[in-house]
């Protein structure tokens, strides 16, 4: 259900307050619906049922994502996915998924408020991330559609390669978000990227 209470993101965004223009190269994408989904990948019936609800097939290849019209599914583990969308409210999506999975061994858990998404985009994105991420994010090794859970500086993060700009979505736990934002801003500083603050309204 949608609550009249405005939500607050860990980086200061307030729901229904105007957000900074998204052509920025470093900004928060607050209030996305984020659902953690666990099920047995051998349960093909469950997979099919999920596909009906999501409009996208869950990626079974490690460290990849599958993007549908309204939703992105990211591989987190052999029986674990993160569903990311701005088109569905968490409660409704959880309810639909649970209904579709009735009778199957599965778990659907809303984690929307527990993590946030930071988007980093532009030619220097790789240089910024290379300051704190040990993964090879060169497009030959980490093309658009790839994802990886790893360490970004000293925080755990899920990285998603969005496009060839390149653009990355960086998903971090809520309590780590201020640290990660400060760290990204510090690394981006030498490339003249700045974090637009949301509480300017």
């Amino acid at each position: 259900m949608s609550s009249p209470t405005p939500r607050r993101s860990p980086l200061g965004a307030i729901e229904s307050v105007q957000h900074p223009p998204q052509e920025a190269q470093l900004f928060e994408r607050p209030f996305l619906t984020q659902i953690n989904l666990r099920l047995d990948p051998a349960d093909s019936e469950a997979l099919a049922a999920i596909q009906l609800v999501l409009g996208v097939q869950l990626p079974l290849t490690p460290n990849t994502t599958a993007a549908g019209q309204e939703l992105l599914a990211a591989w987190l583990g052999p029986d674990e996915w993160l569903l990311l969308t701005e088109h569905h409210q968490p409660d409704a999506l959880v309810t639909n998924l649970q209904a579709a999975l009735t009778g199957h061994f599965a778990s659907v858990v809303d984690t929307s408020a527990g993590q946030t998404v930071i988007r980093l985009s532009g030619p220097s994105a790789l240089d910024v991330l290379a300051r704190g991420c040990a993964l090879d994010l060169h497009p030959s090794a980490f093309p658009p559609g790839a994802c990886a859970q790893t360490l970004l500086a000293r925080a755990q993060a899920l990285l998603i390669a969005v496009d060839a700009a390149p653009t990355f979505d960086i998903i971090v736990r809520r309590s780590f978000a201020p640290y990660v934002a400060a760290w990204l801003q510090d690394s981006a500083h030498q490339f003249d990227l700045h974090f637009p603050t949301s509480d300017t309204a």
Partner: peptide, 15 residues
Amino acid sequence: GRHIGPLADPVRVTP
């Protein structure tokens, strides 16, 4: 490197 001052270690805070 940059693991100094406020970036030395994550400081986790609640809402």
